[in-house]
Amino acid sequence: MGVKRSRDGPMAEEKPEQSSSPFVAMFEGFRTELDEHHDRRERIIKASRDITASSKKIIFTLQRVRAVGQAVPAFVNKKNAEYWETIEKQYKSIAADLQGLNAYRYSHNITGGNQEFMEALSFQHYLETQSLISLEEVQSRISTMSGDVGTVTFTPEDYILGVCDMTGELMRFSVTSMATNGKLPSGKHIESNKRLKQDSNQDETGDQMDIDDQVPAAAAYTQKPRTVLDDLRAIRLQLEMFEAPGGSRFATELETKKMPVMRECVDKVEKGLYGLTVRGNERPKGWMPDMGSGRGAEVESY
C-alpha cells in the first residue's frame, strides 16, 4: 500500500487510511477470533442438521413397528444401525467445540439436533419398554457418544421439547395401528396388571388420574394393560403441569408451538378411538373383546 500511496499522489490523504489505521492490528486480532467463532458455529449447525436428518430416518423405521413393550424387530435395528452411527460420529465431531464456556454459547445451534435425537431415542425407548426415558438416560447416552473430550450438553429444555415432539410419533403410531389392526397398541396383560395396581395404590396426585377417575373401584379395569393413549395422556398431564420460566425463549417456544401440537396429537388419537368405539360393531372381530367394554366406559365419561 505504501507504494500505491506515492503513486496516487494527491489522493494520498484519503485513500491510504484503510491501511494506516492505528486500530488495524487490534482488529486483525478480532478477525481471527470472530473467524474461529463462525467456523465453530457452522460446524455445530451442520452436525445438528445431520443429527436431525438421521434421527428422522430412525423414527421413520420405528414407525413400522406394531408392538409395544418388547424389543424392536431385528429389521429395525439392522436398518437403523447406520443412522445411529452417523449420529454418534456427529456428536463426537463437535464435542470439543461444545466444552466449557462454549457449551451454552452454541446451545441454540445444537438444540435442533438434540431435540430430534431425543425424539428418536425416546420413541424407541417407549416401543421397547412402554415408558418415558429419563433426562439422565439421554444425557448418559450422549455422553458416551461424545467421547473423551467431554460431553455435549443436553439441557432440560431440549428434553422437554423433545418429549413434545415424541407425542407426535406416538400419535402416528397409534393412528396407523388403529387403521391397520383396528385397535390401539397396548402393553402386556399380566405385567401391566401389576403396574396399574401399583398405580392405583400409590398414585395420589398422579399422572394416571384420568384412568382412576373414570373407574373408581377399578378392580376390573386394572386388568387392562395400558394403551398408547393412556401413556399419551400421562405425558400430556406432566407437560401441562410443567411450569416453564415466564418470558424465556423456551417458554414461548413451548407454549406457542409445542404444547398446542402436543394437545392436538392426543386429541387425534382420542378421536380415532372414538371412531373405533362408535363404529365398533361394524368392525371385524378381534378387537371387540379387548377394547369394547372398557372403552365404552371411557366414551361415556367424555
Binding site: 429419563s134 403396574r195 401399583q198 395420589e204 398422579g206 399422572d207 400421562a234 406432566q238
Partner: peptide
C-alpha cells in the same frame, strides 16, 4: 405418584421442574 413401572416416572418431571 405412579411407580416407576408406569409410563412416566414422576421423578423425571419433578427433577426437571426443580432445575
Amino acid at each position: 405418584m405412579a411407580a416407576q413401572s408406569g409410563m412416566v416416572n414422576p421423578a423425571i418431571f419433578q427433577d426437571l421442574q426443580a432445575r
